[in-house]
Write a protein that binds this DNA or RNA. Structure first.
Lengths: 116, 116
DNA sequence: GCCTTGGATCGAAATCTGTCTATGTAACGT
DNA sequence: ACGTTACATAGACAGATTTCGATCCAAGGC
């Protein structure tokens, strides 16, 4: 997919004023990213080779109680940024790239072609 | 500027685990985007031809008291997303594109070339 | 069946946010 | 100087968020 393909599909933040409903929906996703713990969780999940991380690997990486990590993962999941799957005793989380792709597109300035 | 230029400069969220300090700083910016009113304000500012909007044009667009809008603008400003300038009686806000560019880059997957 | 381990859910405490009204400040007109 | 208009700041309050300990559920081993 060419870099322009996504950029052309949606108005984005920077091109046209956002509607009320759109803004509510988008804010939910950005709010999920608005916490240092969740950002680190997301980056740990996204950057893992194989695309999956066991919760058992995430929890000990923070100085926080296990229910707290579980709570943050839930918020990321409800925002549509990650998905989880249980395999045996363990639960694995993976990034949903469509979500971050969309955010990146929304924040990307359309290069105004030439003679503005 | 080629699309890859920005993408190559920083690790991004999706490539390597975020450090603690980085995540705190980034979260502040995303948190500023995590509110529907602020998203709409930002999009109204960013999409305006000429790049500037008078606060007097922003305030009446919402069903909120004037100090509330002022407060949201302050948060966007403190997050480094917009800047303000007083000209006579009026105050004008404009987008700081470097901020949104950075976020877009951070959320962009580096296209892993060919044979992953 | 029972115990252990991984993870989610519940309920409570402390803190942070969004919003308001009231007030302050800066620039302009008369 | 005075009044008016445009914004910002201060203080208050309701509701949301973050975190915890306690508990519950699912899977596996004995």
């Amino acid at each position: 997919m060419s870099p322009g393909a996504v950029a052309d599909c949606c108005p984005g933040l920077l091109t046209a004023p956002l509607g009320e409903d759109e803004s509510v929906e988008l804010a939910r996703v950005f709010k999920a990213l608005g916490d240092p713990v969740r950002l680190r969780l997301l980056s740990m999940i996204a950057s893992r080779d194989g695309g999956e991380v066991c919760v058992c690997d995430l929890t000990p990486a923070f100085d926080l109680a296990q229910p707290t990590i579980s709570h943050h993962l839930k918020l990321l999941r409800e925002a549509g940024l990650i998905a989880s799957e249980r395999r045996g005793t363990w639960v694995y989380y993976r990034l949903l790239p469509a979500a971050t792709d969309r955010l990146a597109a929304i924040l990307t300035r359309r290069s105004v072609p030439a003679g503005t």
